[in-house]
Design a protein around this nucleic acid. Structure first.
Length: 639
RNA sequence: GCCAUCGUAGCUCAGUGGUAGAGCACUUCCUUGGUAAGGAAGAGGUCGCCGGUUCAAUCCCGGCCGAUGGCUCCA
């Protein structure tokens, strides 16, 4: 009898098995939890259902909830349960497609004018759990095209018929579970037993095949879990994310606002500017220490410049245009063309390279009205942009230095968990194959030297060069793409940039576009959600708030206030005629990290009582000079 | 841009075919209070904008503007 190897939770099992028997039988024979915590399997890089015959494969990696493939299959089967539940209440509904997604699943359904509403969600959820508990076995059935068509013609479902018409006739499969049958290629769970918690999340309009000329369907979103505890954890995270919404925090902390007078264009309030400036000052100093020079280029430049750069051809829909003295101009959507103009102001030698020019450049982009979202998607933003001009040989060293810089910058905000993506030459590209090979090799080598694990995205690079993208995870483990490093073989040539090499001849430099935070506006939004508004001292708009116990001590408080301001500390004074409790409460609402309470004792002894919000500590009778020195120390930004 | 929902005081929200309310914030007064909201009074809105229906519209209808969620995850 042939043997197969099973890998499960770090252990390897060998078991005798017939090629014709289903995988779950072999798994069960050695006492492993097939169909319970084991959800599916992988062999040769493809998912192998537990109910499928073992076949010729000899090694199976068994996958549970922790594996993305495990959840994928879990949610795919859950989508079938959702559809089955819905058909029991809305028998007239026509199913279309119901795939798993990154967080759950959905099913697009034509309800024929009688769609469910959120009040119906509980009964749908209850029905799904009832079906799941039976449990239902997912049985794969190969059917002929004629059978398949007949089935859906009888059910008057034009969508499924359309799908079937486009499928290769020999590859049509149905999945049966309970009384439910669905056209589906799988893969699925062996049975529905592990589905123990489910939530219908919401409804959305979606067009058949994503085309607005097609009928409008109702998309029902859902998510399911193998335990109630996991569902509750998910709901807790959702609620937490809602609580941390940067749009609410921006209002609560009085940082920025949006108005009809400028949709998608943020208005920064005084406290928001303090934060934004602290961020920019810090990064500016860091870049200057790292071999960069700062530049600033105009916001409005002639249209001919953008024609030359290629933006007019490729990016026009996102650009704003204007006329000056009857000449067409454009508002810059990117900073690179301006940077190249500064490069060209001198004859550059290879000795000048690499030349690192950074610009906190304000760019405007016409985003579709429907996608604007707080600071995350705006129509005007400030990039922490830089362009590095170097020789092809210098690429690797420059990238290595950049990787270090990126690491340091992210660490300064507590973004310690990051993912790196390397995108390589696409089908449509410019530049020589040799240059591409050298550049991709340099990026790869730099990543390897830095010991950074990365995901390869073959063919996903820009047409003008390969790139590295950085994605960080915030405190709720949500992903945010921040930085990007893009090699550019196109623009230096388009703008005729050259440098004189050691051989005395002119050469074309390579241009590295790079942003670390991406945009300051978006980054502030991410930082607010990451920290729930509890910004670190070095960024806090108000670092310390002075709370006199009564207005008898206002004079002392004002004196201290001036001392703090003179030292460049961001201090505020609560001079209101309120009780201490109220002042503390108000400062808490503002999320002020440090409060100094001062009353009779303090005024007499020239001390302060320090309340630290984040550390939840209090210190009494701290001499003023000591307190100031401590504070000066504490507000120091990271290196 | 498309679909759905929403738009009432600075903020969060309640409400009605007969020209509008609460809490917080704001102003004034009382209180001078020691670690998360002291008390009282007052002021504040052409109910997003434009048009229509009606004796009468914040409410019903249409258009526009804005916000929110979704819209390339294809059995």
């Amino acid at each position: 009898m042939p043997k197969v190897r099973l890998l499960w939770q770090g252990a390897t099992y060998e078991v005798e098995a017939q090629p014709t028997e289903p995988l779950y039988a072999a798994i069960q024979r050695i006492g492993l939890p097939a169909g319970e915590t084991i959800l599916t399997a992988r062999t040769d890089g493809t998912i192998h259902e537990l109910s499928a015959p073992i076949g010729e494969a000899t090694t199976f990696e068994l996958l549970g909830w922790e594996a993305p493939e495990g959840r994928w299959v879990f949610w795919h089967s859950s989508a079938h349960l959702l559809a089955e539940a819905i058909l029991t209440f809305w028998p007239q509904a026509k199913l279309t497609i119901g795939p798993p997604i990154e967080q759950g699943f959905y099913y697009d359904i034509d309800f024929r004018g009688d769609a469910p509403s959120p009040e119906d969600f509980p009964k749908i959820e209850a029905k799904i759990l009832e079906l799941a508990a039976q449990p239902e076995f997912f049985v794969r059935k190969k059917v002929s095209k004629a059978e398949a068509l007949a089935y859906y013609q009888a059910r008057q479902n034009p969508y499924k018929i359309e799908l079937i018409e486009e499928l290769p006739p020999e590859e049509i499969t149905f999945y049966e579970s309970g009384n439910f049958v669905d056209l589906c290629k799988g893969p699925h769970l062996w049975h529905s037993g592990p589905v123990r918690a489910v939530k219908v999340l919401g409804l959305a309009g979606a067009y058949w095949r994503g085309d607005s000329r097609n009928p409008q369907l109702t998309r029902v979103y859902g998510i399911s879990f193998p335990s109630q505890a996991l569902l509750e954890e998910y709901l807790r995270l959702q609620a937490e994310a809602e609580r941390r919404d940067h749009r609410l925090l921006g209002k609560q902390l009085d940082l920025f606002s949006f108005h009809e007078e400028g949709p998608g264009f943020p208005f920064w309030h005084p406290k928001g500017m303090r934060l934004l400036n602290a961020l920019q000052d810090w990064l500016r100093q860091k870049l200057l220490r790292n071999g960069y020079e700062e530049i600033k280029t105009p916001i409005i430049l002639t249209q001919t410049l953008w024609e030359r750069s290629g933006h007019y051809e490729n990016y026009r829909e996102n650009m704003y245009f204007t006329m000056i003295d009857e000449q067409p101009y454009a508002i810059k959507p990117m900073n690179c063309p301006g940077s190249t103009i500064i490069y060209r102001t001198q004859l550059r030698s290879y000795r000048d390279l690499p030349l690192r020019l950074f610009e906190f450049g304000l760019v405007h982009r016409h985003e579709l009205s429907g996608v604007l979202t707080g600071l995350f998607r705006v129509r005007a933003f400030t990039q922490d942009d830089a362009h590095i001009y170097c020789t092809p040989e210098q690429i690797q060293e420059e990238i290595a230095a950049l990787l270090q810089l990126v690491e340091q910058v992210y660490a300064a905000f507590g973004f310690t968990e990051k993912e790196v993506y390397l995108s390589t030459r696409p089908e449509r590209y410019i530049g020589s194959l040799e240059l591409w090979a050298q550049a991709e090799g340099a990026l790869q080598a730099a990543l390897q030297v830095a010991g950074l694990p990365y995901t390869l995205n073959p063919g996903e690079g820009a047409f003008y060069g390969p790139k590295i993208d950085f994605v960080v995870r915030d405190s709720l483990r949500r992903k945010w793409q921040l930085g990007t490093i893009q090699l550019d073989f196109s623009m230096p040539a388009r703008f005729g940039l050259t440098y004189v090499g050691a051989d005395g001849k002119h050469h074309t430099p390579v241009m590295i576009h790079r942003a670390i935070l991406g945009s300051f506006e978006r980054f502030v939004g991410i930082l607010l959600e990451h920290t729930a508004g509890d910004l670190p001292l070095w960024l806090a708009p108000i670092q310390v708030k002075l709370l006199p116990v009564s207005d008898k001590f206002l004079a002392y408080a004002e004196e201290v206030w001036h001392l703090l301001k003179a030292r460049g500390l961001r201090a505020a004074l609560d001079a209101s005629n309120e009780r201490l409790n109220k002042k503390i409460w108000a400062a808490e609402q503002e999320k002020v990290p440090i409060m100094w309470v001062m009353g009779a004792k303090e005024a007499a002894a020239r001390t302060v009582a320090i309340r630290n919000r984040l550390e939840r500590t209090q210190a009494e009778n701290v001499p003023l000079e000591t307190a100031i020195a401590q504070l000066m120390q504490a507000v120091q930004p990271p290196a």
